[in-house]
C-alpha cells in the first residue's frame, strides 16, 4: 500500500467513522420526552445486539455445532445473571471442548 493513497483512504475511513458517531452524540443534549422515541431508544441496544448475534455467531467458530453449544451454554449462564466476563469465557471453553469432542469422534 503506497504512501499518499494510504493517507487519503485512512482519512476518509477514520473521519467518516468518527463523525457518524460523534455528531449525533454531541448534537442531542436534551432529554427526549416523547414516549415513542424514548421507547425506540430503549429497545435499540437490544435489537442491535440480537441482530448481530443471530445468525452470524453460529458461523463464527467454523463449526455450527460448537458455536450453538457455546451460545446455548452461555445463554443458560446469562439468564442466571453470571455477568459478561464469566458468560464470555464459559462460551469460549464450551466451544473449545465441543470442537475437541467432535474431532475425537467420541
Amino acid at each position: 500500500m503506497n504512501g499518499k493513497e494510504f493517507w487519503i483512504y485512512l482519512a476518509i475511513l477514520a473521519g467518516s467513522t468518527y463523525l457518524i458517531r460523534a455528531i449525533p452524540f454531541a448534537a442531542v443534549q436534551k432529554k427526549i420526552s416523547n414516549v415513542y422515541v424514548r421507547s425506540f431508544l430503549y429497545y435499540i441496544p437490544y435489537t442491535v445486539l440480537s441482530a448481530m448475534t443471530f445468525p452470524a455467531a453460529l458461523y463464527a467458530t467454523g463449526n455450527v455445532v460448537s458455536a450453538a453449544a457455546g451460545l446455548g451454554v452461555g445463554m443458560v449462564f446469562a439468564v442466571m445473571k453470571k455477568g459478561l466476563t464469566v458468560v464470555a469465557l464459559i462460551s469460549c471453553v464450551t466451544v473449545f471442548v465441543t470442537d475437541l469432542i467432535l474431532k475425537q469422534g467420541i
Binding site: 440480537s50 448475534t53 467458530t61 446469562a78 462460551s91 470442537d99
Partner: peptide, 17 residues
C-alpha cells in the same frame, strides 16, 4: 475459533437476563 465466540457470549449476557 473458541475465542471468536467471546464477543457473542458477551452480547448474550447483556440481552438474555
Amino acid at each position: 475459533n473458541a475465542l471468536c465466540i467471546a464477543i457473542y457470549g458477551m452480547f448474550v449476557a447483556i440481552v438474555a437476563p
